[in-house]
């Protein structure tokens, strides 16, 4: 745009042309602003509509329930205690070890698988191009459907449940590790390259360590899912495990037992997440020293 003539005086025609162009630009900008406001208002309206309709539905249905009281929904701690005493031996010797075994096996396989896929995607743009949509699609198919199929085909053993746990867990690990690998500081990588590092050295010494905080974030999500995955698999069909215990409780209308199973599931998940946190603290000492400094006193040093 050379609308400012060098040193010569602007004649009227040129000035009018500039004015026309300005008004045209102004019109375009105005239209865009109006469109943006309209779209945003629409989105907000939709969110509000679904939220209030959903809440209304919940309230209406709760009202319709007869004799709904806390006592019928929640068993007392004493009842829970009794259920625990009643089933303690079988829970401790059969169900919990089985669930734990499936969870840990599935989770570790998911971690190895996730790291491998993330590394492959990071290495080769072609693989990234192929694998990324496959990964996303693999999560859009309901895992439940695949899991039920697997268990109905392969039956009672631990194997199919381990696969279910893997299905539940590998995606968050893969995606977060991949994101972490891609987000390594490009200037750091440039420096390594300037120092003569080859691709492998850059990967091992810069990209992988940079991805570790993201990897652990993904692992934490996976750890939360993993126990639920195992329980879900067992619920469909199994000989032992907390899932079976839960299923039997429901079929014999023992709500206290069901709650016990839920409580134990939550406890196992919690322990697993705590374990991940512990390992993370140990492995990422650098990350936490930096953070600790920042909450001692915020500032940029």
């Amino acid at each position: 745009m050379s609308d400012i003539a060098s040193g010569e005086q602007l004649d009227l025609v040129a000035r009018r042309a500039t004015a026309v162009a300005w008004w045209r630009d102004f019109g375009v900008r105005l239209a865009l602003d109006v469109a943006r406001v309209l779209v945003l208002t629409g989105v907000v309206a939709l969110v509000l509509a679904f939220f209030s309709a959903g809440m209304l539905q919940l309230i209406v249905e709760a009202r319709a329930q007869e004799n709904l009281s806390l006592a019928t929904i929640f068993p007392s701690p004493v009842e829970l205690r009794q259920a625990w005493d009643e089933h303690q031996t079988r829970l401790l010797q059969e169900h919990i070890p089985e669930t734990l075994w499936e969870t840990l096996a599935g989770l570790t396989i998911a971690v190895v698988l996730g790291l491998t896929i993330a590394a492959l995607m990071d290495f080769s743009p072609l693989l990234r191009w192929v694998l990324y949509p496959v990964l996303v699609v693999s999560q859009t198919i309901p895992i439940f459907a695949i899991a039920i199929l697997l268990i109905l085909i392969f039956g009672f053993g631990s194997g199919p449940k381990i696969i279910v746990v893997v299905l539940f867990c590998f995606f968050p690990v893969t995606l977060s590790t991949f994101t972490g690998l891609q987000s390594a500081d490009p200037e750091l990588i440039s420096l390594l390259r300037a120092m003569g590092a080859n691709a492998r050295q850059i990967w091992v010494k810069a990209r992988l360590p940079a991805a570790m905080p993201s990897f652990f974030a993904g692992l934490r999500i996976a750890a939360t899912y993993s126990v639920v995955g195992a329980i879900f698999g067992e619920y469909i069909t199994a000989q032992r495990g907390l899932g079976v215990f839960l299923k039997r409780s429901y079929s014999s209308f023992r709500l206290d037992q069901a709650y016990l199973a839920i409580l134990l599931t939550a406890l196992l998940s919690l322990l697993l997440v705590l374990l991940v946190n512990l390992v993370e603290r140990l492995a990422l000492r650098w990350y936490y020293t930096a953070r600790r400094r920042s909450w001692r006193g915020p500032g940029i040093y």
């Binding site: 200037e187 750091l188 420096l191 120092m195 650098w286 990350y287």
Partner: peptide
């Protein structure tokens, strides 16, 4: 030319995990 000269960039660019 990479690796032939020693280079100290303007940002320190130390590896935060080391």
């Amino acid at each position: 030319r990479a690796g032939r000269v020693g280079y100290m960039p303007q940002r320190d660019l130390l590896l935060p995990w080391r």
